[in-house]
Each structure stands twice: as structure tokens, then as C-alpha cells.
């Protein structure tokens, strides 16, 4: 087995095993809910990771797609009585279209400008969610009908496997994108747009494609979040959501494959363990974000992968050879 394959699929196997047995280890609906939220935010983080970690395009407006996906999902079920898979598909398609329409003009911008423009877009979505009361239910939001699949009501445990399945699918898609031409082109775009276009990479097309893909990841995460919370409200598109996303991405590790999972687990579980911490949440996320950026810029996932890479990337034992030769020469 080649080192790349091993590096991609070893974490996948571990995550798959953890995910599959987790419901037996957890007690009660509350712990199950926490587990589901971890998968939800891992999906959200993977989308962001593709966009910023791989392609270097910083969007601070991913929470808009998170909310649009969730609202579309709820509205399609409420007004058109669509089934769960169709509503899920509807939410993803709507987000992809919005991502395309917003992405085409916005991705002409770079760096700070892109970040701010996407944040502006999210603020407008947030405003609409808050104030268009007839359509979005205002502050109280919308209720999502009890989930059912092919006529059968989904129990909590079924819902868990649905959300986990979505996360596993998202991971595979992430690995797939990274290994294709698209992924390599995006890494080139991240390093140097001018150089990338000089070797025939259509920079705009690739940037828009990955923006749409990230919007779809956010949509899936939003929909899963709505399913778990049994409703959707304007906080989905709030500024708190993007702080969560940034914290989990930085703590987990930008550009790392397993980063989003580790980051999501920490961001979701940490406030639960330290009881009565809700008041301090904004403060602690901020401090955590800053401390990680300064002292562990690769994040936990990135650091693990880096230390593991020694054993993957060193088929000829060059590193150990070097170490030996250094030990021999006085």
C-alpha cells in the first residue's frame, strides 16, 4: 500500500470505527446529541478546510450557506411536504446555485477583500432570516418535521447513523477532491495565482468550483444541524457560527485531513465538560483561537499528521540514515 493511500484511508478507517461503535459507548440522548453535533461540525469544517486550507480562499460567510441549506430544507418540507431525501437534495442544490451566483463576482476579490465581502453577504442573510418573519419565522425560526425515511419514522439512533453517514461521505469526497486534478490545481492557486494561470490553470473556474463545493458542504452541515436540533433559527447564520467554524478549523488544523474531526470534537465537547461555561464561551473560543494560532499553528490534526509522516514518507529510511551518519561523525 502506497504511503498516500495509507495516509488517506488509515484515519478514515479509525473514524469509521469510532463512529460506528460510538452509540454503544454513549449513554442517553444528550450524549448522542453531542456526538451528532460533532459530526455536523466536522462536515462544516471539512468544507471550510477545502476552501481555505487547500485553496487559500478565506470566506467568512460559510455560515450563510449553513443557514440557507437548513432553511431551504425546513421550508421545502413545510410548504411542499417533500420527503427527507428530496428536501436534503433541494437544500444542497439551492446552496450550490447561491454559491455560484455569489461566488462569480466575489471571487474576483482576494485575501481581506474576499473575507469581508463574504462576511457582508452572511450578514445580509442573517438580517433576512431575522426580519422576514412571514417566511423564516423571525427570531423563533422554523420547526423541522420529525424525520422519516421511506415512510418509517427515524429514531434517534437512526438519525445518528444518518448524520454519521453524511460525515463519512463528506470525508471521502474531501479525499477524492484533494487527489484529483482539481485539488492539485487549487494548491497551485493557493501558492501563486499568477504562476498557476501561467501553466494553464483556469484560476477563476477552479476558485468558483471549490466555493460551490464548500457551500454544498455547509448546506449538508446546516441540514444535519437542523435535523438534530429539530428546527432552524437565525443563530445559524450568526457571527457566533463563523467564530465556531474558525476555532474548530484552526484548533483541528487547516489543511489537515483529520483536523475538522478533532476540532469539531473539541469545540462541541469542551463547553459541555466545563459546566456553567456558557457565559464564558465567546471569550474562551477567542482565547483558544489565538493561543493555537500563536503556539500550534498547524493545529492538533496537522501536528499529528506531521509527526506520523516521518514513518510514512521515509520509505528508504533516509531520515534514520541521516541520523545514524550524524551520530557516527564526531
Amino acid at each position: 500500500m502506497s504511503s498516500t493511500t495509507l495516509r488517506n484511508w488509515l484515519p478514515a478507517t479509525v473514524i469509521l470505527m469510532i463512529g460506528a461503535v460510538l452509540p454503544w459507548l454513549l449513554q442517553g440522548n444528550f450524549q448522542l446529541r453531542i456526538a451528532m453535533l460533532t459530526w455536523v461540525f466536522a462536515i462544516f469544517g471539512m468544507g471550510f478546510n477545502l476552501l481555505y486550507g487547500i485553496a487559500g480562499q478565506l470566506s467568512l460567510g460559510q455560515q450563510a450557506f449553513f443557514a440557507i441549506g437548513a432553511y431551504t430544507f425546513a421550508l421545502l418540507q413545510i410548504h411542499f411536504a417533500l420527503s427527507l431525501p428530496l428536501a436534503l437534495l433541494g437544500g444542497i442544490v439551492v446552496c450550490a446555485v447561491v454559491g455560484l451566483v455569489i461566488g462569480l463576482p466575489v471571487l474576483r476579490l482576494r485575501t481581506h477583500y474576499l473575507a469581508m465581502a463574504t462576511l457582508m453577504f452572511a450578514m445580509i442573510v442573517h438580517d433576512v432570516a431575522l426580519r422576514w418573519t412571514d417566511f423564516t419565522g423571525g427570531t423563533s425560526g422554523l420547526r423541522v418535521p420529525p424525520p422519516s425515511l421511506f415512510g418509517a419514522r427515524l429514531e434517534r439512533i437512526d438519525l445518528y447513523y444518518l448524520v454519521f453517514g453524511l460525515a463519512a461521505a463528506a470525508y471521502c469526497l474531501q479525499i477524492f477532491i484533494k487527489s484529483t486534478h482539481l485539488g492539485r490545481a487549487l494548491e497551485a492557486v493557493k501558492t501563486d495565482e499568477t504562476a498557476a494561470s501561467s501553466v494553464g490553470i483556469d484560476v477563476t473556474r477552479y476558485k468558483v468550483s471549490i466555493f460551490v463545493v464548500a457551500a454544498m458542504f455547509a448546506a449538508v452541515a446546516g441540514i444535519a444541524y437542523a435535523l438534530v436540533s429539530r428546527g432552524v433559527d437565525p443563530s445559524y447564520s450568526g457571527i457566533g457560527m463563523v467564530v465556531n467554524l474558525l476555532t474548530l478549523s484552526v484548533v483541528g488544523g487547516l489543511g489537515s485531513r483529520i483536523g475538522p474531526f478533532i476540532g469539531a470534537a473539541i469545540v462541541i465537547i469542551a463547553p459541555q465538560i466545563l459546566a456553567g461555561l456558557q457565559e464564558y464561551q465567546t471569550l474562551i473560543y477567542g482565547v483558544g483561537l489565538l493561543v493555537f494560532m500563536i503556539f500550534l499553528p498547524r493545529g492538533i490534526g496537522g501536528s499529528i499528521e506531521r509527526s506520523a509522516e516521518g514513518s510514512f514518507d521515509d520509505p528508504k529510511g533516509e531520515k534514520s540514515a541521516r541520523r545514524i551518519s550524524r551520530a557516527e561523525t564526531p
Binding site: L60, A115, V243, L246, Q281, V287, L289, L290, M293
Partner: peptide, 17 residues
């Protein structure tokens, strides 16, 4: 620079908190 900007966003979060 973008990482530093996220750092200032963390500062904003700390100040709000």
C-alpha cells in the same frame, strides 16, 4: 496576513466575551 486577520478576529471575540 490572513492568519493575522483571523487573529484580530479572535481579539474581537475576546473583547466581546
Amino acid at each position: 496576513p490572513l492568519t493575522i486577520m483571523i487573529g484580530t478576529l479572535a481579539c474581537a471575540s475576546i473583547m466581546t466575551g
